[in-house]
Amino acid sequence: MNHKLIGLTTVSSLALIMISQFYLLAQEKVPREWEQKSYVERGNYLVNHLAECVGCHTPLQPGSDTADRSLFLSGVPEKFAGMNQGPPQVAGYPGPNGARFYPKNLTPDDETGLGKWSESDFVKGFKEGVRPDGSKYEPSAMPWELFRNMSVEDSRAIYRYLRTIKPIRNKVPANIPPRN
């Protein structure tokens, strides 16, 4: 009786563990090293390392292809408006039929950056591919189709980190839409 009870308990607890483990396998898990960290730290990791936003959104030092950290994430400089030759940090990305898309100012500057964006504006941008005014982002080198798969937690982390960087006043040239 006793043995049977032990056997039964063992088998059922094993089954329970297996079921719970496989259930866990199906969940998208926060890596262990992030569980204890703040949103800002996680956002820093995403922006500067994993998603590598810096490459496209930070202007280059003159005559070089190294990012100018003093202009961190401030987008294509206003003075380059109209340039159609050069790297994306100068001339933007070419699109179909003469279109041109410029990496934007991600700093918290109120007039030229994301200063007036709310967290939900930002998360919605990633999740639904729309600007705060409701217009849709066109397909461009900015991987919107990828970022819509990003977890809300990760996009929140990016937003919260971007609030901590230096605001830089720089009005990025307006995108040029495709000619029809």
Binding site: L50, P139, N149
Partner: peptide
Amino acid sequence: QRGRYIATAIQGCACHTRERSDST
């Protein structure tokens, strides 16, 4: 699972995949 999430939601290594003329 984490790798698939990274590649399909955060870092798509987009430079390594060629594009059609409409940038897709």
